[in-house]
């Protein structure tokens, strides 16, 4: 955070994608493996959990003032009688 701020003050375009990506991957729960030869996806090998992006979303949610939206099921479709079928008595 503070490194980013000082980077910005120094030079608006001094942005290092690799460093930033590493920073984010930590938030996303990257499991960095000790040995480099397993997985090896690019410069940072390691196992990214399935909910990696969800984790990041949770972490950054506080930056957003987006209004919550209203979700419902009733009334979202036209009520139709169910198909007639055999009822075992």
């Amino acid at each position: 955070g503070k490194e980013k701020a000082s980077q910005l003050q120094a030079d608006g375009s001094a942005f290092d994608p690799t460093a930033y990506a590493e920073h984010l991957l930590t938030f996303m729960g990257l499991n960095r493996l000790e040995d480099e030869d397993s997985d090896g996806e690019g410069p940072s090998g390691g196992y990214l959990p399935q909910d990696a992006w969800q984790r990041l979303g949770n972490k950054v949610q506080g930056c957003f003032r987006t209004a919550p939206s209203f979700h419902f099921m009733l009334g979202s479709f036209l009520a139709e009688p169910p198909a007639p079928r055999q009822r075992v008595e």
């Binding site: 980013k4 980077q7 910005l8 608006g12 375009s13 942005f15 994608p17 930033y20 984010l24 996303m28 992006w53 969800q54 984790r55 990041l56 979303g57 949770n58 972490k59 950054v60 949610q61 506080g62 930056c63 957003f64 919550p68």
Partner: peptide, 29 residues
């Protein structure tokens, strides 16, 4: 204050992606 009610409102994966892109734009001026 930030973070107080954060635990109740869950960010999702799209929020994460959008955040990354917005922050890149921000850092690039």
């Amino acid at each position: 204050k930030p973070g107080e009610l954060a635990s109740m409102s869950l960010g999702d994966h799209r929020t994460g992606l959008l955040f990354v892109i917005l922050s890149i734009i921000f850092m690039k001026g």
